[in-house]
């Protein structure tokens, strides 16, 4: 048996942490992109599109992320796309993230007074111009804090990629646990690393929220 010192454990965990960060970034970037498209689809007054967005949100918020990952993993392999654990995890986290972001942003956009849309319309601005010049600049301010807050859920969500075999921080922890038989120590380290990743995001979110509330 190989002996692992604390330094070895931490070094191995930190290597895996890079994948946690990378997966989080991919999921968040992907989630923002999809959520933007869904938001535009929802605001456009086609009933079919907004029903689709509502069902999309309901399904991805109403089922476990773990199930979504399994379905992406086995579903994609069924339609004979060669799928890696990375792809399945990134895809499912993207969909999951977008469903929550679109809902968070909905709140931010819908609390803007109706008069903002009406005044824009009276001045002859098109739908997209109204979004770009009037609605989004105001909504982004209110959406920033809760969106960053949600990014904590994304980072934590990447831990589930360990279940489909993607070697990120949690999977590395499990593997080190099996090699060292020191679960208390290993999972404490793992938890600390997640905390270091997540806490600044939580803090920033809270800080921005306070700042925004104070400026009103």
């Amino acid at each position: 048996m190989i002996e692992f010192s604390n330094i070895d454990i931490i070094r191995n965990l930190l290597i895996a942490t890079q994948w946690t960060i990378l997966l989080s970034l991919a999921a968040f970037a992907g989630g923002i992109t999809v959520a933007l498209l869904l938001t535009a689809a929802r605001l456009n007054k086609t009933p079919l599109l907004s029903i689709f967005v509502r069902i999309y949100v309901e399904v991805f918020q109403g089922t476990p992320l773990l199930m979504q990952m399994f379905l992406c993993f086995f579903g994609l392999s069924m339609i004979s796309i060669e799928i890696s654990a990375w792809n399945a995890a990134a895809l499912s986290l993207t969909l999951f993230t977008s469903a929550f972001l679109v809902e968070i942003w909905r709140g931010c956009i819908d609390t803007l007074p109706k008069g903002q849309w009406e005044a824009s319309r009276c001045l002859g601005l098109s739908f997209l111009q109204t979004l770009r010049y009037i609605i989004l600049p105001q909504a982004i301010k209110t959406a920033l804090a809760p969106s960053i807050g949600f990014s904590v859920q994304v980072v934590k969500g990447t831990a589930l990629a360990s279940v489909i075999g993607f070697v990120e921080l949690t999977k590395a922890g499990s593997m080190l646990n099996n090699a060292t038989f020191e679960p208390f120590k290993v999972f404490t380290f793992v938890a600390i690393i997640y905390f270091i990743l997540c806490y600044p995001l939580s803090w920033t979110s809270k800080f921005l929220e306070k700042k925004f509330n104070a400026s009103r």
């Binding site: 007074p113 008069g115 005044a119 009276c122 001045l123 002859g124 601005l125």
Partner: peptide, 30 residues
């Protein structure tokens, strides 16, 4: 509505100014 905006202006009960734009920007936007 867009074509009309060039002939018809509207003033609202609640002003509906754009809060994130300065007075000048509010007027110059359209």
């Amino acid at each position: 509505v867009k074509a009309l905006a060039k002939s018809v202006g509207m003033i609202f009960q609640n002003f509906n100014l754009f809060p994130h734009l300065t007075v000048g920007q509010n007027i110059m936007l359209a």
